[in-house]
Design a binder for these strands. Sequence first.
DNA 1: AGTACGATTGACT
DNA 2: GTCAATCGTACTG
Length: 200
Amino acid sequence: MAKLPVDFYQDHDTLTLSRLLLGCELVHESAEGTTAGIIVETEAYLTGDPACHAYRRKTARNAAMFGPAGTLYVYLIYGFYYCLNVVTGPEDVGEAVLIRALEPTEGLELMGERRHLDPTTKTGLRGLTSGPGKLVIAMGISRDHNFLSLTKAGKASPVFIRPRMQENVEMVTTTRIGITQGADLPYRFYVKGNRFVSKP
DNA sequence: AGTACGATTGACT
DNA sequence: GTCAATCGTACTG
């Protein structure tokens, strides 16, 4: 199963990619093992959007957002958790798609160890990846993955995304979670009825 | 140099 | 539903 190529990330704008990424599978081939999950919730962060980290200027924290489309942007939030974004838009334009929830498909046992949850129970399974901070832990993503490419060959990109298996994904569009500025913008997308969505 | 605060989560009432 | 935990960053002075 192939990685989505760099053209996929380059050929669509950020809002379109936020929708197209739903139903695709995020994969991390780590030393501990491989984990993967279907992307079921995303949010778009655009230039000119006050909630976007890159709204004001390029800084040490948001620098990855200005990289080429198909780059990873990982940042610390609230001093505890990390969030994972797919960088979008042309190079030197600071836009990205936040991955907010996954439906686990591979490496559930490893995810359970990382999250200290039992994936064989209903609540334990849902707790693995039903939020942006949770999925980063379950997938074994860290600050070291900031700036990595999703599209390079082999070990150069242990984190990548596989294309959708099914063509049609029924989705819902709403406002974004946890922000104060730009709170009315309809930039959040999720798979309708999916139980791993953080806040249905 | 000092400080306010955030794209969250989990524990507790 | 409410609330504390914890720290790097970005902005102020």
